[in-house]
Nucleic acid binder design. Structure first.
Lengths: 334, 334
DNA sequence: GCGAAGGATGTAAAGGTTTACATACGCCCC
DNA sequence: GGGGCGTATGTAAACCTTTACATCCTTCGC
């Protein structure tokens, strides 16, 4: 036996399919007695709306696309959690695309918007593909594309971010206030907007404290554990070592810390370390990691709400969320 | 201007819509010259298939539903990565549902299968809702539901798992072979199938070594960092402490380890610790965590392949993947 | 008692594909 | 030259809803 359709329900309840549809969407405009009869028939037949037919007719997929650079990474998965919460509260379905930061893969997902599979998108990384080509206002029907976290200054109003430069500055300022004068920075990957913003904040803090920039103190990195370990290898070779390091994210800090520890360097006695993000496991380091907290779950939720507001026809307002310095055990006076 | 439809393409190319459709799906049965003309028209108009119409007509959503207990948790997000890889290779779209292990939330997702939004499902947790109610073979069209990781012995052939009891046994056996005789276990959450299986493996290893069970050495837990910390509080109060602990997962082990460390207990000198899962951050502990590796990404990929094979009409074969003991620094002779 | 108004329901079209079946055409062979 | 076959394309129905518009009925005011 095939799945019941709206016709089966209508027949059983002795009404037209229009009435069935109304019972499901605008129950208050149908007479109470009829409504009961119809809903009874719905239960009896085990009827479920066909999503494809509904979306074809109503021109709404009730789905949002989320493009993640790396779905296996905690940082993003916590943002996803926030998105999911709001989406499911709004009755929307969440379609996930893993882009691996590749333009080609991203283009596949652009298509999801073009073929109506999703009503809007949330990008968790700097867009690489030409999302701008999407006919945003075809027939008054906006297809909002919200960027979360990796946001440049020219990204327009559909963005959710923290002030990365200010946050980095606060991190370095914390080290300075502890008395550090030789402060290094382990950067994020090249050509990443966050890398640039955090580096800028680092330099600004040095400037404000009248400390000079030392290019050899700016170590390359790429946000992974490995690059934290690699940074240690470079660090240990420096003739005149920094007394404190600011990492562009926690994962690198943790990679560095475990290697340093194994090599006999004691944190924070020999070296202070501060990370960025406050990921779940930052508190399990030994010592626990001082870091900048990004409200990841809230960032996801805010992005979803922003998208919903645009879908509802409201004018978008960019969201900027607060960061927070979380002082734990990995920083101390030199 | 509205989105181009298949009619627009047909008109521009001077053919019928049937031919356009054929060019897109079975290009080899249309004359080369016609095909070129049509594909040219597709490019020129910027045409994209309407997903809803296609899925309505073809009765296929080209989408798979993935139900996760906690999308923000690394353990699951790495499985998701494996699923995504295979799904996108097969041209399928991935719909994500976060169940929070709640039956009610899960029921929402059951509906996704009933209303045709997805062609099959992958469950990353022991099912709570009545997935079995889904008319699996309506009109020959199977709706496969594959369970990954949290698999009981009566779950049928649509499963991907490791042998949790054997893995737990191997972990404890490792401790025994190092010379430990007083070995404790920090359990997973109650009513979880993995908890039972790992506990069973723990006990079996003791039995085989002729060591007696000591109920006070079986500490309660719930897979979270906090419960690892709580386990430490209980551990430290024990009159006769174990010399080694087997944790039902890495996260608890890490919570325990950082607390223990802060309290001056040295691992592995004072206490050996072994975890389960080999999550990404297990290697950053100090000392690095000895653990059992589960091939999470591969588990996700295998689940997706299993689902695809059923969709292709093949008979399903349950997948059992190998685990691996990863010896690092947190275990040593007593 | 009649007309108007308003509430409840029905009718039918439209949304954009896929695909079974029909048609048209060219070609070969007897 | 006609029957038959194979290839390329067209026609039209079906997939299942939503919704504008039409219809019918009840109620109310005068």
């Amino acid at each position: 036996m095939s799945r019941p359709t709206i016709d089966d329900v209508a027949r059983l309840a002795g009404v037209s399919i229009a009435t069935v549809s109304r019972c499901l969407h605008t129950p208050d405009i149908v007479a109470a007695k009829t409504r009961e009869r119809v809903l009874g028939a719905v239960r009896e037949t085990g009827y479920n709306l066909n999503a494809a037919a509904q979306s074809l007719r109503s021109r709404r997929a009730n789905t949002v696309l989320v493009v993640v650079p790396d779905i296996g990474n905690t940082f993003f998965s916590e943002i996803l959690g926030g998105i999911e919460r709001e989406a499911s509260a709004a009755g929307l379905t969440m379609l996930i695309g893993n882009s691996g930061r590749s333009k080609t893969r991203e283009e596949v997902y652009v298509r999801y918007l073009l073929n109506g599979r999703a009503d809007g998108a949330l990008l968790l990384a700097e867009p690489k593909a030409r999302w701008s080509d999407i006919p945003v206002r075809a027939e008054q029907r906006a297809v909002p594309i919200v960027t979360i976290s990796e946001v440049g200054s020219d990204f327009g109003p559909l963005t959710v971010s923290i002030d990365n430069a200010a946050a980095a500055e606060a991190a370095v300022q914390h080290l300075i206030s502890l008395g550090h004068r030789r402060i290094g920075h382990v950067c994020g990957p090249e050509n990443n907007i966050l890398t640039a913003q955090r580096l800028q904040g680092y330099r600004r803090a040095l400037d404000k404290a009248g400390l000079r920039h030392r290019p050899e103190f700016e170590l390359p990195g790429s946000f992974g554990l490995d690059s934290g370990r690699a940074a240690f290898a470079r660090f240990i070779k420096l003739a005149d070592r920094p007394s404190a390091l600011f990492f562009a994210n926690d994962e690198m800090a943790m990679g560095f810390l475990s290697t340093a520890s194994a090599a006999g360097i004691q944190v924070p006695r020999d070296l202070s370390i501060i990370g960025f993000d406050d990921i779940h496991f930052a508190q399990t380091c030994i010592p626990a990691l001082t870091t900048i907290r990004q409200p990841r779950s809230e960032m996801g939720a805010a992005g979803m709400r922003l998208l919903l507001s645009v879908l509802a026809g409201e004018a978008p307002v960019p969201v900027r969320l607060p960061f927070e310095l979380v002082v734990r055990g990995s920083t101390a006076p030199p």
